[in-house]
Design a protein around this nucleic acid. Structure first.
Lengths: 193, 193
DNA sequence: GTCTATACGTGGATAGAC
DNA sequence: GTCTATCCACGTATAGAC
């Protein structure tokens, strides 16, 4: 097939996505214009609409694929609940510290999704939370953990762990490994182990 | 003094503030227009500028007064660190559950502040965090608590407690008192008491 | 203090040329 | 696939009448 004049599609598609991700994370979805995204990619506005039907889809797709990737990467460790809780905790910290931009967007831009897209994202989030809640329930059943309310504990642990992304800096006082250790220690205590 | 034609200033001032607060909390600062705020208040756009020089000041003032109120309300309990930690925890939960809108704004809209305003807000936030960190340090010194890193533990506790506002509903499964109890229990364990 | 009218920039999105 | 040009709605903010 003859090459279309000025074609760069193989590169441009992913670039649109990453440019939007960086800009949404930094300035917020509502504050970023399609023109800014185009400038970041190095094309004119019109070209963006080859890769996305509209701005809303750009946001939805990046949140959806982030959450799907997160769920797919959940550690499928077998064994005692406490071991699985440790694996989950270390996984969550690492995965989130490695992807600050989609993480930030997934937590900040929920209200900029339309109703239909919102329910899809909420379902994915619920699936992720259910994974942790199951561990906590089984830990309590097995007598390894002491948790008053497994749903609340789930949300508390996730909020605590995700909060790391708001202050952690690679050139800061603590290494990722140290942070991971400190948080695992706090989670372990929280569940009464 | 003669009454100005159509004057409603005594009511309009506060209404602008609360309307902006409600709209910013629901849709985000960048997504809300001055026209929407005016409609919510029940005036025309031009009238808003009697009460604020611009949209940015509206955001800054509401964040500033929220944080100043929060700091002023901190529980000045004397006694053992553990007692003071409990007072802080219960205070934080109650104060935040009572003011979901300014709380949400103060955590979500930091990036929409200009540089100068941002540094003012960050300083206030630091002051609030320092209050908790001092309690933890003193608890460790007194041998009542076991905390690996007081700064990290401070941020973890605040993230965990503030996260409640994202899911708590008054018509939900748990009462405020129950939530307060569950979280105090988790905090207590986290600090190794 | 509030209104109407308006200036002027920028927003998302599309059409048609190359 | 990309560009230029354009549509038209909506954004913040101000001026001047009442």
């Amino acid at each position: 097939m003859a090459r279309t004049q000025g074609s760069h599609s193989a590169h441009t598609g992913p670039k649109v996505r990453t440019a939007a991700e960086r800009l949404f994370a930094r300035h917020g979805y509502a504050a970023v214009s399609m023109r800014q995204i185009a400038a970041e990619v190095g094309v004119q506005v019109g070209a963006l609409y080859v890769y996305t039907p509209d701005k809303q889809s750009l946001l939805f797709e990046m949140m959806k694929s982030h959450l799907e990737g997160l769920i797919a990467a959940l550690p499928q460790v077998s064994g005692e609940p406490l071991k699985r809780l440790e694996a989950f905790t270390r996984f969550h910290v690492r995965y989130h510290l490695d992807r600050p931009e989609p993480v930030f967007i997934a937590y900040m831009e929920l209200r900029n999704l339309n109703a239909e897209n919102f329910s899809v994202i909420e379902a994915l989030r619920g699936k992720y939370e259910a994974f942790l809640e199951t561990i906590l329930r089984q830990g309590v059943e097995a007598g390894d953990m002491s948790v008053e309310d497994s749903k609340v504990a789930t949300l508390a642990i996730i909020a605590m762990l995700t909060g790391i992304t708001t202050w952690f800096r690679d050139d800061g006082r603590l290494t990722r490994a140290e942070v991971e250790e400190i948080y695992w220690d706090m989670v372990r205590r929280m569940v009464g182990a």
